[in-house]
Amino acid sequence: MAKVGNVINYEDCVIHVDNVSKSFGDLHVLRNVDLKLYNGENLVVLGRSGTGKSVLIKLISGLLKPDTGDITVLGQRVNDLTEKELMQLRLRIGFSFQNSALYDSMTVRENLEFPLVRNKRNLTRAEIDREVEDVLDGVGLLQALNQMPSELSGGQKKRIGIARTLILRPDIMLYDEPTAGLDPITCLDINGLINEVQERYKTSSIIITHDLACAKMVGDRMVMLLDGKFERQGTFEEIFDTDDTRVKPFYDYNFIV
């Protein structure tokens, strides 16, 4: 599905990463990074493997804690939240994992029900079934309802993973390498789905990738993580209009080689 013009409110910042640093031992992954995600926007974070892209979204969702700096999500400072408050905030954030992270001991239906059953305890069985089928239909995999994750292809797992996050109707989506390890046709499907999610569920999203076709197709704005800092940001054309030897190989590999 082609990207349509979405209404982005540049007055309303839903995620603000302010001067954040994160190290693992002697390895300085993020160095004083600043980032803003605006309401309704698809922001693509580009960068080489191991540059801290996934660490960034884990910091945003509170799975990791920053060494320094502040992260504000939907008006709440993540660092200051109690465990209970963080749990509540996470219900408004959908996290699509690189390897889908489906619970492999559960069927697709049980995977999708899990967040609903645990967080919306007043729902009836019929309402749960309706929600599950609706969201599964949205990703085009209604027929996989009773299958086990081991019976699904990589692309199907990605779709189910996205469906599981959408079932709680999040305001923000975080996609970690949504097209990693998929064939080009499935990549196009997933990119289309990301745009469809933005349009249908009115989400604001951060998409972590080093797949430039994905970036170009889904991104309203892009930032590039270089040596632990966001050194380049703008549209696709603005990012790659440079002779920087750290940036050019990205473009060359994806579109020339």
Partner: peptide
């Protein structure tokens, strides 16, 4: 294996301890 495949993280971000 749940740790390796990020299922524990997935549980945490979907509001379950």
């Amino acid at each position: 294996s749940m740790n390796v495949t990020e299922q524990i993280d997935a549980m945490e971000v979907s509001g379950t301890n």
